[in-house]
Design a protein around this nucleic acid. Structure first.
Length: 704
DNA sequence: GATCCTCGAGTTCA
DNA sequence: CTCGAGGATC
């Protein structure tokens, strides 16, 4: 029941309800605080609290001594609110070798069109903690948020206010200032905290990072206050005025504003010195007193950072030079085959569980057949050309501290093991598969689609970039897929779930593990997604080669579902529709074929249309809402550009909402022609397309 | 036709 | 996070 249907409640019922709610909420609170993991999800906790409050409002005299409404620490809505970052908190690209670092510097120089010797970079330790963004307005701390997915983080303001390294007030600060940095715990504090926890028979932490994370995510700020959290400031997010014109200057100003900054940050004139500094920091790693996992290099000049801008998930002007990962030796029990949503058959190593850098690892990816054989995609040997066999003693590491991989094989421990035969394994498992010449992956080749593929496709459909249906995750999908009463076999089935449940005799709400509330929550979450953005639908279809990015390009290009749908039906090879599809920037022949093919079989088309009928698909918002004169225009650059490089000009134009094409056509709005422009300029003149030179171009975008 | 850049798909554990 | 591969560029 919810707070909306307490009308008919008798006093007796209300009393009983209040009692049970009080108990449930108290238990949930304890679970949350002591184990750092809630027993019930936030939504149901909130619902219970609201119900409790509603009953208390109607029967004030029944309010209990131990009413959950009066509990401190659980006062606000449970969990943490979400905060959308004004400037996204991106992750960094990684370098694992010195060569990667040199390549990074060269890339930067090339993008800017300068010689690499003219560039300066900062180098600083990469703290192994949690990134945090703290917003100050007129010198007052207004909120602090974790990184989250980079777009949206958790509101941890109350906890952050208790961290002594972080000022609550700033003097002489600009109107708006978002300070970014890393929350961490020192080795000494970590050891002391664990000793204290043990004494109090509380849970201990595996490493300082986890301890810092656990401490920051306390619902009760007084617990956070008791934890020895520290903070290094290293960058800015949104800002009403810049603090300096270099990275180093920014950090120096942050220090003068009262923040802790890392003393090992330095500026270097050349890459060799940067790499030396990396070695220096690596050698002193054990003596620093806190965990670091590498060194971060950044282009020092902020105006150059601005010119470099961002790739889809990382800034172009920074890179993290990571320390070698921790490794561990263990026995490889067996190689299993997993099936992905596209029918890809991927080998996975089942391992004797082993601790790698504080995490128990029992699986490792083996990528594909060649990787097991010890070859990379070009046929070059990896791991010294050693193959991997079932039963081998293998060295495991976590690539990027996340994904377990096999680094090495101990051949001296190998006796009478057969080389792994991928094809024979598939035969044993009775999986029909084939590997196209030139491809690395084996794919499922049976006539009937495998259940595993359908399940993975459904998981993709409800995943975050697609429909993102709350309460319908991987686990629920697996349950519903083979459910006898309420099956979900296709995406469209999700949107008939509530209706079908209503017709059924056994109701979802009566199942074990479910209740009235959780069933309604699920149905509501599904209802919420009936109105959905076009790109989410296209992405959710799970068409091969069409990921989130391509889905957005397609949505933007076709504007509406009807438009897109009609074009897919028509765009057979050789038609004008196909030419138009392939003409879209970012869509080539392979993707065009793949996306059109997805609509060609009558069965597939029927399923897609059935799904669309359940939805109200929002047309794509036209990009380039910026008032830039080039917003929404299609531009072509030709000839030599002097003031900025081609890629820079392209990135800049796109950030202003323009589309940059490679060649002049009737759809081109503007040609920017540098010296040496040839056939493109002529064609533009012939077509009557406006042509400007580079100076006019810079003039055009200068006041943006 | 080769090379660079980016995206897509698959991967682990908590 | 990594690898493979598609698309754009030179």
């Amino acid at each position: 029941m919810t707070e909306h249907d307490i009308d008919g409640l008798t006093e007796e019922q209300a009393k009983t309800l209040l009692e049970s709610l009080s108990q449930e909420l108290a238990a949930a609170n304890t679970a949350y605080h002591s184990e750092d993991a809630p027993k019930i999800d936030d939504a149901s906790y909130d619902a219970k609290k609201r119900l409790n409050a509603a009953i208390e409002a109607k029967f004030p005299h029944l309010k209990r001594e131990d009413s959950p409404s009066d509990q401190v620490g659980a006062a606000p809505s449970v969990g943490f609110g979400k905060i959308k970052h004004a400037v996204p908190m991106l992750s960094l690209a990684n370098a694992f070798t010195d060569e990667d670092v040199y390549a990074f510097a060269d890339r930067v120089a090339k993008f800017l069109g300068v010689d690499v010797t003219h560039l300066q970079f900062t180098a600083e330790p990469k703290i192994d903690g949690l990134s945090l963004s703290i917003r100050y307005e007129n010198g007052h701390l207004v909120y602090a948020a974790t990184r989250g997915d980079g777009e949206t983080g958790e509101n941890v303001t109350n906890n952050v206010r208790t961290i002594t390294d972080i000022p609550n007030q700033l003097s002489n600060a600009p109107e708006v200032l978002e300070v970014r940095g890393e929350v961490y715990m020192s080795h000494a504090d970590f050891v002391a905290l664990n000793a204290k926890q043990e004494k109090a028979e509380q849970k201990t932490f595996a490493n300082p990072r986890n301890a810092a994370a656990g401490s920051l995510r306390q619902l009760d700020a007084s617990i956070t206050k008791s934890r020895p959290l520290r903070f290094f400031a290293y960058a800015l997010g949104a800002q009403s005025a810049p603090l300096a014109d270099t990275q180093l200057g920014t950090v120096a100003t942050l220090k003068s504003l009262g923040f802790s900054t890392n003393s090992l940050m330095q500026v270097f004139e050349n890459v060799a010195d940067m790499v030396d500094h990396y070695r220096h920091i690596e050698r002193s790693r054990a003596d620093l007193g806190y965990d670091i996992d590498g060194v971060v290099y950044k282009v020092d000049a902020l105006d150059l950072q601005a010119r470099l801008g961002f790739r889809s998930t990382t800034p172009r002007w920074a890179i993290a030079h990571k320390f070698p990962a921790e490794t561990a030796w263990t026995r490889l029990r067996e190689i299993e085959i997993q099936v992905g949503r596209t029918g890809a058959l991927s080998p996975v190593a089942r391992l004797e569980p082993v601790n790698v850098g504080g995490v128990l690892v029992s699986n490792a990816t083996l990528h594909n057949e060649d990787y097991i054989k010890g070859l990379d995609s070009k046929g070059n040997p990896i791991r010294g050309g050693k193959d991997i066999r079932e039963g081998d003693l293998v060295q495991v590491y976590r690539a990027g501290d996340v994904i377990p991989k096999v680094a090495d094989v101990d051949l001296s421990q190998r006796t009478e093991l057969e080389p792994f035969d991928f094809e024979r394994k598939l035969e044993e498992l009775n999986i029909p598969g084939h590997r196209k010449p030139g491809d690395a992956v084996w794919r499922y080749a049976g006539d009937e689609p495998m259940d595993e593929v359908a399940i993975e496709a459904l998981k993709h459909f409800v995943s975050r970039g697609a429909f993102d249906i709350e309460g319908l995750g991987a686990k629920q999908i697996e349950m519903f897929f083979s459910d006898p009463d309420l099956p979900i076999r296709h995406p469209a089935d999700i949107f008939t779930l509530q209706h079908r449940d209503a017709q059924n005799i056994p109701k979802l709400a009566n199942r074990t593990g479910w209740g009235e509330r959780s069933a309604l929550n699920l149905f509501q979450a599904i209802e919420d997604k009936r109105q959905i953005e076009l790109h989410r639908v296209i992405f959710g279809l799970g068409i091969r080669h069409v990921g989130e990015s391509a889905a957005k390009v397609l949505a933007q290009s076709f504007g509406s579902w009807e438009n897109f749908r009609a074009s897919m039906a028509a765009a057979l090879p050789g038609t004008p529709e196909r030419a138009e599809l392939e003409g879209i920037d970012g869509i080539g022949p392979v993707m065009a074929e793949s996306v059109v093919a997805a609509f060609q079989s009558p069965q597939a088309a029927e399923k897609i249309d059935e799904l669309a009928n359940h939805l109200s698909i929002k047309p794509a918002e036209q990009l380039g809402q910026s008032d830039s004169p080039v917003a929404g225009k299609t531009l072509v650059f030709t000839g030599t550009l002097v003031k900025m490089t081609r890629s820079e000009a392209k990135a800049r134009a796109e950030s202003l909402g323009a589309k940059v094409a490679g060649s002049v056509s009737a759809k081109t709005d503007l040609l920017i022609a540098g010296p040496g422009a040839g056939s493109k300029a002529k064609k533009a003149t012939d077509l009557g397309i406006e042509t400007i030179d580079e100076d006019q171009w810079i003039e055009l975008i200068s006041d943006q």
